[in-house]
Amino acid sequence: MKGFLKLTQIQLKLFLREPAAFFFTLMFPTMLLLLFGAIFGNGNKPIPQLNGYGNVDLLTGGFIGMIIATVGLMSIPVNAAAQREHKILRRLQCSPIRPIVYLASDVFANFITTSAGMILLIILGKLIYNLRLPGDPFGVIVWFVLSAFSFFALGYLLAAIAPTARMAQVVGNILFFPMLFLSGAAIPHQILPEFLKKVSEFIPLTHVIRIIQGFWFEGKWSDYYIEMSVVIGTMFVCLLLAVRLFRWE
């Protein structure tokens, strides 16, 4: 346990010393919220089509999805692959720490940074645009956690497959950017043409965002069984493969 806590603490320190990860997880989503809030210009006035919620409320759900994808597709694959490539894992392997403890601390540290990104986004949204809080906070929290784990599993899978950290970064980016634009995280899903709407159904992030926005707007659990299955399915498939393909070196 003390090994787990120490490793988590070290991972968080390293995160704070990594400007790119720090910026994209904590600063970038908030910057986008400010920017888009200004573009839409109407603050957070209720819109009838949004069940009485406003643009900023809608955007926040999307940006929470973006934070999850940033950590899962950009931070985790590159870090995990780099630690293997540079023989850092090798050195840890020489100590009595068990692989599962190392992995658990890495997951936990990443979960803390992802949550910090979300909390910061909500606090600033509230202060600046009078963001409405989720209609179903429990649903949002549960599916934030499950979605984060689902994307983390995808991230570790990428790290396990990629031969080098550089390759992990390339693959992570290739997955991240289309997801960002097609899932509704950055661009409202409604304005996509029919063809791209169909494509976006195959993107896990689309489903993550649909669930979180849905519960934000007081949606019912029974409306999202398909989306929930996609998130859980992604998590299990990636986790199984990642465990099977994990390498110390």
């Binding site: 003390k2 090994g3 806590l5 120490k6 490793l7 070290i10 320190k13 390293l14 010393r17 990594e18 630690q83 540079h86 023989k87 850092i88 090798r90 050195r91 020489c94 100590s95 009595p96 720490i97």
Partner: peptide, 26 residues
């Protein structure tokens, strides 16, 4: 105790932190 021919630590880990971290494993 083991010293490997090739090994590394994270670039931004400080020397004292490395000792602090590894000592907690034992």
């Amino acid at each position: 105790g083991m010293q490997l021919q090739q090994a590394a630590l994270p670039d931004r880990l400080k020397v004292w932190e490395a000792f602090d971290m590894f000592s907690q494993f034992y």
